[in-house]
């Protein structure tokens, strides 16, 4: 069971977020919706990065599959949301399982390159399969249930789904499975000698990541009422990767902070200058040079420093 402190803290965060629409600011509500979606996306990627120690460079693929599938099922096939959303998530998970089957045979840079290659294939399908996906015009005009058509309704829906998704990921990452994954990450050879099939563990982690990435993508598509091939492009994979690194890969909540920080920065930067890529480059520099374990690592160091100072006085 999660510690009471964790539960209470999470409940407070969800409650505060739930109060946000009272501010009356549409801008704030939309921004919060986006941050929530990216937080789930980044957390899902960290199951592969933080928990198996392999960098995936193609996580946008599952985001896009979830987004497109949900959009197409809702709109082209007129399926209800209660079916479309789970179906899209399952599809993203199945594709992740198929891709992961091959990727987990490799590690390190070869693993990263293979995930990138598969993600580019997914992008290619979204681009070429025009009748179904809309090609480079994008898939627009997603039909949403009336309840979710209003931005506040959609915010609450996102908040509920993301909270459930984060809770599920929390349970998985802290389970016996999650602890064993950490052992595999730390020393795969030793993990083999205690009876763990390390490749299958990494395969399962990859599938879990893709499944929740698909959920984030489905939320994203519905929020924007459209999916575009850029959402499947490798730059999206890089973006979520930076969110994870910025937040900190060795902590469960790190990627949430990374996603929030990066998305807010991007939004504000875009209001003042068109040079977001340059700013992003600077952020990367900062991560590599001064924040190797992300914002969470910085917070931990700050706490240790304060503790040490208090200890001296």
């Amino acid at each position: 069971m999660p510690q009471r402190r964790t539960l209470v803290a999470s409940a407070i965060v969800v409650l505060l977020l739930a109060l946000l629409p009272l501010s009356g600011s549409r801008y704030a509500v939309d921004l919060a919706t986006e941050v929530l979606i990216y937080a789930l996306f980044a957390l899902s990627l960290n199951v592969v990065i933080g928990f198996t120690g392999n960098i995936s460079f193609g996580h946008a693929a599952y985001f896009a599959i979830g987004g497109y599938a949900c959009a197409i099922l809702l709109t082209t096939y007129d399926w209800p949301l209660a079916v479309s959303l789970p179906a899209a998530v399952v599809l993203a998970g199945l594709v992740a399982a198929a891709v992961g089957y091959f990727c987990v045979r490799l590690t390190q840079i070869y693993f990263a390159m293979l995930t990138l290659a598969f993600a580019m294939l997914v992008w290619g399908v979204a681009f070429k399969w025009k009748e179904v996906t809309g090609g480079d015009d994008g898939f627009t005009g997603i039909k949403l249930p009336a309840m979710l058509a209003h931005h506040v309704g959609y915010f609450y829906f996102t908040l509920a789904v993301v909270a459930a998704g984060v809770a599920a990921l929390w349970v998985i990452c802290h389970s016996a499975f999650g602890l064993t994954l950490v052992a595999v990450r730390e020393n795969a050879v030793r993990a083999g000698f205690i009876g763990v099939d390390t490749r299958r563990m990494r395969w399962a982690a990859f599938t879990v990541a893709g499944t929740f990435g698909g959920l984030a993508g489905a939320l994203f598509g519905m929020y924007h009422r459209g999916m575009y091939i850029e959402n499947a492009f490798w730059t999206e994979s890089a973006n979520v990767l930076i969110m994870v690194l910025l937040g900190g890969i060795y902590s469960f909540v790190g990627p949430i902070f990374g996603a929030a920080a990066l998305h807010l920065l991007q939004t504000f930067t875009n209001q003042y200058t068109p040079y977001w890529p340059t700013v992003l480059g600077l952020i990367l520099l900062v991560i590599v040079l001064v924040l190797p374990d992300g914002l969470i690592g910085l917070a931990a160091r700050f706490k240790a420093h304060r503790g040490a100072r208090r200890g001296r006085t």
Binding site: I172, H174, S175, A176, T180, A183, I194, V196, M201
Partner: peptide, 25 residues
């Protein structure tokens, strides 16, 4: 502690348990 705990988890085949908190086992 974890070094040994994980070995016991694996011995019991619990590495596939996605729900039970690992550190309590």
């Amino acid at each position: 502690f974890e070094n040994v705990q994980v070995a016991l988890i694996a011995h019991e085949g619990q590495q596939w348990n996605l729900f039970r908190p690992g550190r309590s086992l």
